[in-house]
C-alpha cells in the first residue's frame, strides 16, 4: 500500500471519530438546554395529548443516552430524522438545499484561488512599491470585514445603484430552472445546452460568490505574499538570479511552487469560513441554500434538522480538509514520499 493511500485511510478513520464526536456534542447541547421541542414544533394551540404523542414518536421522553442511541441507529440507516419545521425528512430537505450552497461555495473557492494567489504573487514580486502597498491594505480590509457587510455593500453598489447585477435569487423569475442533474444551475444549464439560463445563473451567482470570497481572497493574498517573500530569501532563488533567468520565470516557477505549500494548508481553514459565512451571504442575497434553511430551523428550534445540518456541514469540512491535504502532498514531494504522517 502506498504511503499516500495509508495516510488517506488514516485520515478517513480519524474523521469518522470526529464526526461521531460532533453528533454527540450537538446532541448533548440540544437535549440539555431547556425548552420542549415537541411543544415548540406544534405551537401553543396543540393539545397536551398531541404533544405527548409527538414526544413518544421521536423518543423525546427517553433519557439522553437512549435518544442518542436511537438517533445513531437511524443515521446508520441513512435517516437523519424528520424536520418539525418543514414536516419532511431532514435528508430530503438537505438534498434539496445543499446543491445551491455548494455551488456558491465552489464559486467562492475558485475566486479565492484565482484572485488571491495571483495578487499575493504580484505583491511579493513588486514588494515595497505602490501596488504592493495597495494589495496589503486591500488584504487587511478583506480579512477585517464580515461577509454580510461585503454582501450588503456589493448589493447596494452593484445591484441597487448601478443595476449591473440582480438583487437576489438564483435565477430570473421568468426562467424555469434547468432539469436537475447535479443541482448546480451552472452545470445543469450547460448539460441542457441552455445558454440563456447559463448566463442568467452566472449573473445571479457573481455577487454572492464574491461577497463570500472576499475574506478568503484577502487572507490568501496576504499569506501568498508572506510565503513568497520568505522563499525569495532562499539560496536557490539567488542562484536562479545569478544564472540570469527572467524575473517572471523565477517568480512564477521557482519561487511559486514551494511558496504554495503553506497557502494550500491554510486554504482548508478558509473552507470552514466559507461554510460558516454562507449563512450570512445566503441571507443577504435570498439564496435558497442549506444555510438559509439552517437559520430557519435554528430560529424554530427544530432539533433533528439542526443536528442534521451541522453534521452535513462538519462532514463537508472534513472531506474538504482531506482533499486539501492530498493536494499539499501532490505539490510537496517531501510530504508525499515521507508518507504516514497524519
Amino acid at each position: 500500500m502506498s504511503p499516500l493511500v495509508r495516510t488517506l485511510i488514516h485520515r478517513l478513520a480519524a474523521s469518522l471519530v470526529v464526526l461521531a464526536g460532533v453528533s454527540m456534542l450537538m446532541f448533548v447541547v440540544a437535549r440539555v438546554i431547556p425548552g420542549d421541542p415537541a411543544r415548540i414544533a406544534l405551537g401553543p394551540n396543540a393539545t397536551e395529548a398531541q404533544v405527548e404523542a409527538l414526544r413518544r414518536e421521536r423518543h423525546l421522553d427517553q433519557p439522553i443516552p437512549v435518544q442518542y442511541w436511537e438517533y445513531v441507529r437511524e443515521v446508520a440507516r441513512g435517516n437523519l430524522g424528520n424536520s418539525l419545521y418543514s414536516n419532511r425528512p431532514v435528508r430530503q430537505d438537505i438534498a434539496q438545499y445543499l446543491p445551491a450552497t455548494l455551488e456558491l461555495i465552489f464559486a467562492a473557492a475558485a475566486m479565492i484561488v484565482l484572485i488571491g494567489i495571483p495578487v499575493g504573487v504580484l505583491s511579493a514580486r513588486y514588494r515595497r512599491r505602490l501596488g504592493d502597498h495597495l494589495g496589503r491594505v486591500g488584504s487587511i480590509v478583506g480579512v477585517s470585514t464580515p461577509a454580510f457587510v461585503w454582501g450588503v455593500i456589493l448589493q447596494l453598489v452593484f445591484a441597487y445603484f448601478w443595476r449591473l447585477f440582480p438583487i437576489e435569487g438564483r435565477l430570473a423569475a421568468s426562467l424555469p430552472p434547468p432539469p436537475p442533474i447535479t443541482g448546480f444551475f451552472v452545470i445543469d444549464s450547460v448539460l441542457a445546452g441552455d445558454g440563456k439560463t447559463l448566463i442568467d445563473s452566472l449573473h445571479h451567482l457573481a455577487l454572492p460568490a464574491l461577497a463570500l470570497a472576499m475574506a478568503g481572497i484577502g487572507q490568501t493574498a496576504r499569506l501568498t505574499r508572506a510565503s513568497m517573500v520568505e522563499t525569495y530569501r532562499k539560496p536557490f532563488i539567488e542562484m536562479a538570479h545569478a544564472y540570469g533567468f527572467r524575473e517572471a520565470r523565477i517568480s512564477n516557477r521557482y519561487a511559486f511552487r514551494p511558496a504554495l505549500v503553506p497557502v494550500l494548508t491554510i486554504l482548508g481553514l478558509d473552507i470552514a469560513a466559507l461554510l460558516g459565512n454562507a449563512f450570512l451571504v445566503e441571507s443577504v442575497f435570498g439564496w435558497p441554500g442549506l444555510s438559509r434553511y439552517g437559520v430557519e430551523v435554528i430560529l424554530h428550534k427544530d432539533l433533528d434538522a439542526i443536528v442534521g445540518t451541522v453534521l452535513i456541514i462538519a462532514a463537508a469540512f472534513l472531506v474538504a480538509n482531506i482533499a486539501v491535504d492530498l493536494l499539499v502532498a501532490v505539490v510537496n514531494p517531501r510530504i508525499r514520499f515521507a508518507g504516514g504522517r497524519a
Binding site: V18, V22, L275, F279, L280, K301, V310, F317
Partner: peptide, 13 residues
C-alpha cells in the same frame, strides 16, 4: 471541525 459561526449559531439556536 465545525465551522465556528455554525457552532455558535446552533448553540444559540
Amino acid at each position: 471541525s465545525i465551522p465556528p459561526l455554525v457552532l455558535a449559531m446552533s448553540i444559540t439556536g
